[in-house]
Amino acid sequence: MKSLLQAALVIAILSAIGFLLGPYHTDIYRKLLLWIALALSYNFLFGVAGQVAFSHFTFYGVGAYAIVILVTQAGLPLPLAATAGIVLCVLLALAVAIPATRLDGFYLALATLALAQLFIVFLNEGGELTGGSGGLTSYRLPDVGGITLSGPRYTVVIVLLVTFTWILLARIDQSWFGRACRAVRDNPQAAAAMGIDVARTRVIAYALTSALAGLAGMVYAFVDNTVSPPIFGLENAFLLLFMVIIGGSGSQIGSVIGATVLYLLPFVLSPLIGHHHALVFGVVMLLVILAQPRGLTGLWAARPWRSR
């Protein structure tokens, strides 16, 4: 009950912010929330389950393109299109993870890099289906139950996505499955000796987090009402990795902090030093890794002025 109230309060506050912002800040706010949702699920994959995968943005893209294609080209009703999009993400995730997790973790990194590159090629060469390099534009979200979800109301949808992602992952992380994932990350041999099916645990963690990325992608598709290949490239996949590392991998609050800091940093730095903000970004990244491998949340946990 208490946690439900907390969730309701968070949803109310985050939604209220959406109603106060002008169009420019609404756009920043929505994208920040989407980055947070992605960082949360990537944190579970990379930080908790210890899988180095570069396909998270690919699944974001699969979700986004799938819902647009299914709604506009196949003419499916929205709920059906959303379900089909999730199923597609899970199937694709299984197709990647089942062969890759049988091998060393290094091969998952390679396989997912290949998948990410292939996806961009597919988007660019997809003809009518994907709209090629220009992507898909000029579509809009169908009304849901007679309600037009636009403006601040669509921001509420994004808030619900973030809260759902947080609650789902927090519950899983604190369950037997979260412990199994951490055990597999730390010591697969000892995990197996505890009765944990290592390959199965890895595949489930990969499919689950990829499906969450796909879900976030579906929500993203109706933020700008346009989807195009550059958004789903490797650059953003690496940025996501940095967000999780800087915030403190394995920590949900760390992912929120990491995503917030790294997404907002260019907005703060660009007016001051122009494109040199990338340099500042690189230096900050290096300092964090060298000084505190557990990221900003690790810095907080190790604060010297803490009373013991």
């Binding site: 199994a180 010591n187 995990a191 944990i196």
Partner: peptide
């Protein structure tokens, strides 16, 4: 071969994996 970064209690609870493992939907649904 202990699980680093976990408490002693969580290490022991990891040992209960077989007995605790259940449908993940039940976990998500709380």
């Amino acid at each position: 071969c202990l699980f680093a970064g976990m408490s002693l209690r969580d290490n022991v609870m990891t040992g209960m994996h077989v007995g605790l493992a259940s449908n993940l939907l039940g976990v998500i649904g709380g």
